[in-house]
Design a binder for these strands. Structure first.
Ligand SMILES: [Mn+2]
Ligand SMILES: [Mn+2]
Ligand SMILES: [Zn+2]
Ligand SMILES: [Zn+2]
Lengths: 158, 158
DNA sequence: AACGGTATGCAAATAAGTTGCATACGCCCG
DNA sequence: CGGGCGTATGCAACTTATTTGCATACCGTT
């Protein structure tokens, strides 16, 4: 559900005070057009399929977009994942991270109800973000595993 | 609140079917005795102060303890943090990660109420864990920043 | 004491992200 | 249009966190 028809990426960039470049537009389109958050490697590979780009440029673009509030940075496994930041069109929502394949999916906002009030009232520091991450094995991986299990069983029946 | 008087680490290891070694006991004591989760580097350094140990051994011990359910692995910044896994004495709870100093703190379990039912009912994959992580700047860092700010202001009053 | 299985150490490799510096590009001025 | 300025990009090298392969040491059992 990260996909967004309502976002004009060009306008998002200028409105954030960022120069509009082909690379930046491309990164925004890729992240915004995907059904779930992507990591830098995936974004790099996707841009590369059409236009050559340096890895470092991807990292720098992602940093800039996060800094300016266009993307949100999520942790999954040992890498960061990037999705469109919550805004008027996109409600903040939790994510699912598959430990097996490393894919990250967006969950519906109401999937996990969460009440921040008790914390916000007493916490002494400065709260910038609250993330809910569900870890496990996605359906695709589960199917793959059980299929492989059956194949092995048929081939080598103990 | 990770600290635990009720846990006999020696017994936890044997009960999990793991050989009891000095290194493993030490790692468990360090993690269990700290007020919040620690990353591999911090654990390594702490063990080292008393006994020489190889960095890789720390990683392998942490993996084993997580595999066998004695520790939980949390993501914070670009590293993993380790705390005692929830059990009969330790209720699962959210954590706070300070972006500035990298310290991770445990929050009270009721700090964030969260209802998993809606998700568990419809999610097609296998859910292994749900983590709530609050990011921001801890009180210590806030104080340090505002102190530095005042100092600069006094020295260079624009 | 010999044996088989873990645990540990050491070196090297990998994965993800960062930094320094040089060049290229976009945009404004005259 | 051409020069100048500031940001964006590329490239190489570096850092940090973690993993892997292989050899050795240790442990509990026979
Ligand atoms: Mn999302
Ligand atoms: Mn904790
Ligand atoms: Zn999967
Ligand atoms: Zn801090």
């Amino acid at each position: 559900m990260t996909m967004c028809q309502n976002c004009d990426y060009h306008q998002l960039l200028t409105h954030a005070g960022l120069e509009v470049t082909a690379h930046r537009l491309r990164v925004l389109e890729i992240v915004g057009g995907n059904t779930g958050p992507l990591n830098a490697q995936e974004i790099f590979a996707t841009v590369c399929r059409a236009t050559p780009i340096n890895r470092v440029t991807v990292y720098r673009i992602l940093d800039a977009l996060v800094q300016h509030g266009l993307l949100e940075r999520l942790s999954g496994g040992r890498a960061f994942y990037y999705g469109l930041a919550p805004n008027e069109h996109h409600q903040r929502h939790p994510h699912f991270f598959c430990r097996r394949c490393g894919r990250m999916d967006c969950l519906r906002p109401e999937a996990i109800a969460l009440d921040l009030q008790p914390l916000a009232r007493v916490f002494p520091g400065h709260i910038e973000n609250v993330a809910v991450r569900v870890d496990g094995v996605c359906k695709l991986c589960m199917d793959a595993v059980s299929k492989r299990g059956r194949a092995q069983q048929a081939h080598n029946p103990n």
